[in-house]
Design a protein around this nucleic acid. Structure first.
Lengths: 183, 183
DNA sequence: GTAATCTATATAAAAATTTATATAGAGGTG
DNA sequence: CACCTCTATATAAATTTTTATATAGATTAC
């Protein structure tokens, strides 16, 4: 039930459901994804339970915005979640499951194509994350030492993303070389 | 809907639901987890749709086993899934979301404790994966070149796991040092 | 000016997942 | 021999997630 906690985290700064979706796509893509059809009902539920407040705001484009913000009660729930300790061993990587069973494809060439497609995806993702990190670095001097606390932890996760996806890209390259030897 | 495809992959070798659960816990822990209460209904569903065959077997301990095996139709579905290309950007890492919002905890010491707990979890996991990889290496000479195709791809995912979790452990160590400077 | 696209919110239906619980034989412990 | 644990299979209920669809004003493209 992590999505609700993530929403409580994001909405410490007031945002509309649409803005929240943008956060997922631009910043959280690294470790979480969510669709609008999942976000809206959860926002409603959290608001009904007093974890979020709602303020209507006029919008410059489109109909009125509902701007959500985490309440004190909501922050307490977020803190409880984090204090329970790191949630691990619940990750799911469909592409690794596919790799595990790659031998079910007939012909080494198809297997190679799969790994090359994966490499391309991961390389693009790595470039994307590097871009965001460079941007962040350029905005503070003496990175990451003088970064203020409120952006330090988000940037830690960004550093993690760059490192992890970098490792995946390297692995793809090694895997491609090994598969080529099997052609 | 990857669980069904993973079951089709696993059951290319005949296994009971209980054996499948063991596979998840021992070998797939790296990239997928599933509970028995999730596995049994999906096995039933796949069998109803002709993707799995069922054979009853006497068991040395406990009641009779139902041994499932992927049918030709099931293998075709597995192959279709993999041929659609790598499924990416659907990963969810709750612990990274927690890290992102770590500043919501009051006091640097609590934040440090969280990262230290994460480091310990990841270190243990890394050790576990290294153990399995060493075991695998000792069973073939000229690893990974002379590994037969049917175990090569599973071992690729194991190599990935070691590399990725290794990168996470390093990141935890860097993060801990950076947080200590903020005490 | 009208068609397509974008911002924004939302619901319905279907499917998957989690959490809790039920059952029952076999083997070991005290 | 009563109790516990392990193997093994399974269901119920609640919740979450996915997929598809609806609506509507504002903006942009042609």
């Amino acid at each position: 039930m992590s999505l609700q906690h993530i929403l409580l985290g994001i909405l410490q700064e007031p945002k509309s459901g649409y803005d929240v979706k943008k956060m997922f796509d631009e910043i959280f893509s690294n470790f979480w994804s969510a669709e609008l059809s999942q976000i809206y009902p959860q926002l409603k539920k959290l608001a009904d339970n007093g974890k979020l407040s709602i303020t209507e705001e006029e919008s410059s484009k489109g109909p009125n915005k509902k701007v959500y913000q985490t309440t004190q009660q909501g922050i307490e729930e977020l803190v409880d979640w984090i204090e329970q300790g790191p949630v691990v061993h619940t990750e799911r990587h469909a592409y690794l499951a596919q790799t595990f069973f790659l031998n079910s494809l007939s012909g080494t060439e198809k297997k190679l194509e799969f790994m090359q497609a994966l490499h391309q995806e991961m390389h693009q993702w790595h470039q994307h994350l590097c871009g965001i990190l460079e941007q962040a670095k350029s905005e503070v001097d003496n990175f990451p030492y003088d970064v203020p606390d409120e952006s330090f932890y988000p940037q830690l996760t960004l550093m993690m993303g760059v490192k992890k996806v970098g490792a995946i890209v390297e692995w793809c390259e090694e895997a491609i070389e090994l598969i080529k030897l099997r052609l």
